[in-house]
Simulated scan of single mutants.
Amino acid sequence: MASDFGTFVSPNITPDPEFGIGDWSFQDFVRAVRHGVAPDGSPYYPAFPFEFYATLTDRDMADMWAAVQEVPPSNFVPEENEVPLPFSIRQGVKLWRNFFYEPVDYVVDETKSTSWNRGRFMVEGPAHCAACHTPRNFAGGLDTDAQFAGASGGTAGWTAPPITTEALAEGGWTEESLIAALRTGLTPTGDAFGGAMAEVVHLSTSYLLDQHIEDMAEFLMDQ
Rank of each mutant, 00 (worst) to 15 (best):
F121M: 04
Q223C: 01
F76G: 06
A167C: 00
A62W: 04
G171W: 04
D63H: 06
H133K: 01
L178M: 06
F76Q: 05
A217C: 09
S113I: 01
G150N: 03
A180M: 03
T134Q: 07
M221A: 09
F19N: 13
P46M: 02
D105N: 15
T111L: 00
F29Y: 12
P188E: 08
V71T: 15
T134V: 08
T189E: 13
L95W: 12
M122K: 11
S204N: 10
F8Q: 13
G150Q: 03
A198T: 08
H202L: 11
D215K: 04
W96A: 05
N117C: 04
W96F: 14
V71D: 12
E170H: 10
Y53N: 11
D143S: 06
W158M: 08
G141C: 04
E214D: 06
A130S: 13
Q91T: 14
D105P: 10
T174H: 08
R118Y: 08
T174M: 03
D58G: 06
F99W: 11
T164M: 07
A181E: 14
G185W: 04
W116C: 04
S152D: 14
A66E: 12
V200A: 11
P103V: 03
G119P: 03
E110D: 08
S3A: 04
V107K: 12
A127R: 03
A192V: 13
E166V: 10
E18S: 12
R34K: 15
T164K: 02
V201E: 00
T7W: 05
S177R: 03
S42W: 08
T189G: 13
G92A: 12
S152C: 02
